[in-house]
């Protein structure tokens, strides 16, 4: 077992680069579904009705209190077993690990982001909601036009780092036969017995994607906060409150 830079760049890297789209697909799909699901989770968690908040709390606790790996195995093997045989034969896509992985990552993200969003909704300044009410907006109008957009802005930095964590977590999909970046690296590693070339190569690719994604998310954050950044520095602290 030796480390060979030339081998890594000429043989390993090209194969890994072809796996990048799948890793990004996993990240984006689960990110979008998970963040959309996070809105009802956060709302249920904030509700005063125990029929709503109790399951939401339990859901968040389960998602945050158990390893993603166990959730993934539970869904892939457990759910896969519960699906009746004729459905497996009829819908061949159900045999593909990728949908189970997306399902697991989505609900996991929903749990984590739901809790973050809850905090952000509570942090929306009361005056803004009162102002919206004073304009005669209905409850749902206040939520969709004032509370939610404001809350998303508040938790955007946390959501960015959650997205990076999600991208890294998609490497677990390799354990349920999805040939994304990590899965491809593992396949090469097992076939060639070259541990360092493949793992370091994959590490470099991940590092590059994360770096790029951080840049994109920073840009998004700046863009969504344009009006606040354009204000004179003296008023900034007030606007942020």
């Amino acid at each position: 077992m030796k480390f060979d830079v030339v081998y890594m760049i000429t043989v390993v890297m090209p194969q890994l680069i072809w796996a990048i789209p799948l890793t990004l697909f996993l990240t984006i799909t689960s990110g979008v579904i998970g963040n959309l699901l996070a809105v009802p989770v956060a709302l249920a968690r904030l509700s005063l009705n125990p029929i709503l908040w109790a399951p939401a709390r339990l859901f968040i606790l389960t998602m945050r209190g158990t390893p993603l790996l166990v959730q993934l195995y539970f869904i892939y093997y457990g759910l896969g077993q519960l699906i009746p045989g004729w459905m497996m034969r009829e819908f061949t896509f159900l045999r593909d690990g990728i949908w189970y992985a997306i399902f697991a990552f989505s609900i996991n993200t929903a749990g984590y982001t739901g809790e973050i969003l809850r905090g952000a909704i509570l942090a929306v300044p009361h005056g803004e909601i009162e102002a919206a009410r004073a304009f005669g907006m209905s409850r749902s109008q206040v939520f969709w036009r004032v509370t939610l957009p404001r809350a998303i802005r508040i938790c955007l930095p946390t959501m960015s780092s959650e997205t990076i964590l999600l991208l890294k977590a998609t490497s677990l999909a390799s354990l349920v036969t999805v040939y994304e970046l990590m899965g491809t690296a593992t396949t090469i590693r097992v076939d060639t017995y070259r541990v360092y070339d493949t793992l370091i190569g994959a590490g470099i690719v991940y590092f590059t994607i994360v770096y790029g994604l951080t840049r994109v998310l920073d840009w998004l954050e700046r863009r969504l906060n344009k009006d606040r950044l354009a204000m004179p520095s003296g008023t900034k602290a007030v606007a942020r409150a």
Binding site: I164, K168, S171, L172, M182, G203, Y206, Y211
Partner: peptide, 10 residues
């Protein structure tokens, strides 16, 4: 920036 799974293996 690198997945924990990869780092642990490496």
């Amino acid at each position: 920036s690198v997945p924990e799974l990869l780092l642990i293996l490496l």
